[in-house]
Design a protein around this nucleic acid. Structure first.
Lengths: 118, 118
DNA sequence: TCAACGTTTCAAGGATTATTGAAATATGGA
DNA sequence: TCCATATTTCAATAATCCTTGAAACGTTGA
């Protein structure tokens, strides 16, 4: 991920409704959620949710796909992973202090972590 | 880190000059950098750098301390770590896909990582 | 084909954020 | 004390972002 994309992603996450959307979509997994359901849960108008979903899609953090009348939005796990990686990269150069807590969290998905550490 | 603080931190990182500042401070480590040096490197005016430094301090991502005539700014590694942790937390609940790449990066600071994993 | 549903687009307005230059503040040395 | 340095604050303007409601679009079932 380059700096330009990171800037857009941080901007996307810096708004309450959008951060809420991303967190819901991450939890809802591969099924994703329809725009209408997202609007309902987030308690904002359809046109407003559409505005924010568009912004999030532009950032690459979520993707959309039409399913009959609904449009289903899904979290882009790869993009989220790349953003975390971007945040971590500089620090690892000379500052393990930052990575330590992050590594602790990474450890929560132990299978992947152990694999990577070999 | 709660959601409110994360929102502010993402907002702080969503601006080109500010992201640049954070990356420089992370690289410059515990020595930090004086406001003037930051302004020079970032090629922005003193008053503008002051505006952005204030915003970054509000987010908690950097700290300041006066050193004679200069004011030295330093990256707050703990806060950066907490932000990464915030980004990772939800996903680890059910989605190791995101953590795997992050764990790979975390592995680069092996000493700290192994410690945390015990 | 028509009506209903789910969603997006658009234009207008309001709100927030960024930039600028001038003036103010704090510090240290002559 | 006075001056130079390093930085911040302030007010004004410019730029960007968010919200709103009305209208348009694509899809489905009658």
């Amino acid at each position: 991920m380059d700096q330009r994309q990171a800037l857009i992603a941080f901007g996307a996450l810096s708004q309450e409704t959008r951060l809420h959307i991303v967190r819901m979509l991450v939890v809802s997994g591969l099924d994703g959620m329809a725009a209408g359901s997202i609007a309902e849960k987030a308690e904002v108008s359809p046109s407003n949710i559409s505005f924010h979903l568009k912004e999030l899609e532009r950032s690459g953090l979520i993707t959309q796909q039409r399913e009959s009348r609904s449009i289903i939005y899904t979290a882009n796990y790869e993009a989220l992973g790349r953003l975390i990686r971007f945040l971590m990269e500089d620090c690892c150069g000379g500052n393990p202090e930052i990575c330590a807590p992050a590594a602790a969290v990474a450890a929560c998905c132990a299978p992947a972590t152990k694999e990577e550490l070999q």
